[in-house]
Nucleic acid binder design. Structure first.
Lengths: 334, 334
DNA sequence: GTTATAAATGTAAGCGCTTACATTTAATGT
DNA sequence: ACATTAAATGTAAGCGCTTACATTTATAAC
């Protein structure tokens, strides 16, 4: 592999000049720029990005931490991020935290030790304190789907209260009054918020929230299954079930069907996230759209703007959920 | 950030010695190792991986190129790979090729310019020739789901002929004789192979393959939808439809249902890949398992073994498909 | 034609490590 | 105790770039 040295020799200029044309910043005369470019192509020169990083103290890499690399939620997020960065010649290093505190911490340290210029984090288990502490370090980061007041300007979030509200309101509008709810783990802010929104809508309809119709799930399929089972056996009657995310809705649907319920005739079901496969389940699931791809792009823009001083479209930090109507919720026959 | 220099000063030894304890290779006495380690923790020293890379000419990074970062197929693959590498302190740089020749090439060049020690490629559009040429370069790579005779030892593949055979055989065993087939793009080797296996099974049952019952799809949902539409309108009758992958099966199911067919009663459907959401569609889709997660891990092991000289479990290059029976295929009433 | 000023280029010192080689120290045999 | 050999440590030259600063060259002003 040719080095900058050989290029400079062939072109008959100094190292610095070659470097200048590479980074086309300083003033280089058209003539020498031409000479150098020609020498580069002649030698098939490709700059060594490692050396560039060491000398410039900038690795051009950003670390991306998600809970899982698989799973319907993270794909679109990573996708949005990778696209935005590659356009700018930055690369993304991925790591998975598996919703586990220790592993999330390890992943962050791994990414930092890899000299990432910035981090994009979707973390669940790690504490606010850790993140606040981290923010004092030298590696800047953005948070996706997590709000910490002290770090508010770098939190890219969805208005989950509103999402919860939208879901419940829609179901209420269809005439349902006996509505069960399977929440996420309530120590998670997003799970709380969605429930808050849910209750808000209920209140608007002058319905009180029945604690017996609440089951605390885990945001995973099994939680939905267990939740339905529990509510079906122990709770009061209900004609609609709202789940705090799509996977739980899917689990609940499968179990409901096992219990010989006809869907959606005997039970309306509502999801949350609008994960891509919701179109494919049967009946196609009505849900709340979570614009995770856009939020990923926004996170990328955040670092492009704040870390790499690039011009980007205006940054946005709060995203809006949106109701997606499909066929899993039926009008309740008065 | 403390550097190796400060550590050496604090510990009262030379740079080289510190480097030695870091890479714990050479002979260092326990006493000095101890001294150095203490100095390191005292200073909170973390080696600068960029500098290490430059000096050692090894970036400890491997490039991973997939068609899409989202999509049900790639998630488990990336997951297997990331896990394997992080355990060994290697990091993975991801890029998406979008099944497009130019973008795949760009991505490969990007990854190489990033000084990846090795590449793991899941490419579709790029030519064999390009890859053969690439193999002469200095960056080693493995191919997933692609077989090139000249590069056979670095091709990690599934026996797609067998998979196609398995799917057809199962449907035949259920008594179906009029079987439609939606293939992938037939210029792709895997699409061809699956079809070959399909025909093989048919032949075993003394059934001739009816070209009118074949539709060439695109491995995407829309292709499945269009395929069903076409076959339904133009082809002879059929009681079963085999699709060359799950997304097309999903598309076909949706369209079949729009045409008022009852599934699976009026049409049995078979998929391929066993992508995770096949459990969730209705009726749950019978399919062929593609052990993509394991294959990803194997690709990682390949580079760990061949590039980083690590000990790994024995390498395997050919994986076996497996029949997954769910509820989308019904016994054909004689 | 000078001088002042800006533009273009060159020089050389790093960036923080690894590693070949040289040197010192310890271990072993006699 | 001395020579021989192995183990432990040190020295210093890179790895391929960037960039502050110095120098040279072109441009403008008078």
């Amino acid at each position: 592999m040719a080095t900058i040295y050989e290029v400079s020799k062939l072109a008959g200029v100094s190292l610095a000049t070659v470097s200048r044309v590479m980074n086309n910043n300083a003033n280089v005369s058209d003539a020498t720029r031409e000479k150098v470019t020609r020498a580069m192509t002649e030698l098939g020169y490709r700059p060594n990005s490692i050396a560039q990083s060491l000398a410039s103290n900038c690795s051009n890499s950003v670390g991306l931490l998600v809970s899982e690399l698989h799973g319907p939620f993270y794909g679109p997020m990573m996708s949005g991020i990778e696209t935005a960065f590659r356009k700018q010649g930055k690369h993304v290093i991925i790591a998975a935290g598996h919703s586990n505190e220790e592993r999330e911490q390890q992943a962050i340290e791994f990414l930092i030790s890899r000299n990432c210029d910035a981090l994009i984090l979707h973390v669940e288990a790690i504490s606010d304190d850790y993140l606040i502490e981290l923010s004092k370090g030298k590696t800047p980061f953005v948070l996706i789907n997590r709000y910490i007041a002290e770090l508010s300007s770098r939190c890219i979030i969805l208005d989950n209260v509103k999402g919860g509200y939208l879901a419940a309101k829609y179901v209420l509008e269809q005439g349902h009054t006996d509505i069960a709810y399977i929440s996420g783990p309530l120590w998670k802010k997003d799970a709380q918020d969605r429930l808050t929104g849910h209750k808000q809508a209920l209140a608007e309809y002058n319905l009180s929230f029945n604690e017996q119709l609440l089951y605390q799930g885990d945001f995973m399929e099994d939680g939905g299954a267990a939740g339905f089972q529990y509510l079906h056996n122990n709770g009061p009657q209900f004609t609609a079930l709202i789940c705090a995310n799509d996977e739980m809705a899917t689990g609940a649907m499968a179990t409901a069907r096992e219990c010989k319920l006809k869907l959606p005739e005997q039970l309306s079901i509502m999801g949350y996230d609008n994960v891509f496969f919701t179109r494919h389940v049967y009946p196609p699931l009505s849900t709340i759209n979570y614009p995770i791809n856009e939020m990923g792009r926004m996170a990328a823009d955040w670092v492009l703007s704040n870390v790499y001083q690039k011009n980007t479209p205006p940054l946005q930090t709060l995203f809006e959920p949106e109701l997606i109507i499909r066929q899993s919720v039926l009008t309740h026959p008065q």
